[in-house]
Amino acid sequence: MNVGVLPRLEPAGIDGYMVRLFDTIDEDNLAWLSALSRDCETAFGQALVDLVPSYTTLLVIFDPLQISAWQARIRLSELLARLTPDPALAGGKLHDVATWYHPEVGPDLARVAELSSLTEEAVIKAHSEREYRVFALGFSPGFAFMGLLDSSLTCPRLDTPRSRVPRGSVAIAGQQTAVYPTVTPGGWNLIGRTAARLFDRDRDGFSLMKVGDRVRFVAVDRNTFESEGGDPTPVSPTTKETR
């Protein structure tokens, strides 16, 4: 492992720095990452191109014609020297995600139950009674990596990813959980489905969730799921990729 003092500024091309703040995943990281993101927006202004927060890092991309990498480095060092965690965002926005947990839309419920030596009911309870934080977005637009799961639910990805995971599928893998915002391939264990739109072009900012948000999954029945606009079409068993 790359040993060094944190935080650290690592070059990422002529137009970026990777700001490495931590070396392990922790909910407490989020308040620091959120504070640094906000400080960067102020300090870089028009020269800022993109900010990519993730579990332990913030990737800062700037316009190298407006600000040189040397200037950017100095500016980031100054921000880091007086960085304090963001008390306002320590909580993050809270989302309740109404979820219909059922084998028809969550075909891996039985697999997860078996791997965790729990009943399906206990899996649902363990998943829905905990509050999660959004650590990162990626994989596809609006796809939020949330954690951490109760350790009893930790289970590996599918050996063979599905070529087509339905929109709104609630899934788990490793110590994390997520909702598939759009139809994509995917290898996580599907345990239910929500009518919530994680990525919606009619919403300001498109994505329901941002890094640092808090999320609870609330178990609902099929009628509630459908009345909220959920599509109960079962996951087809034939949509697994063969490669």
């Binding site: 091309g13 137009d15 993730s54």
Partner: peptide
Amino acid sequence: CNITSMVSEGISMGA
């Protein structure tokens, strides 16, 4: 590489 996998982080153009 002595590092086989890392905690996921932002990827810049041309990485």
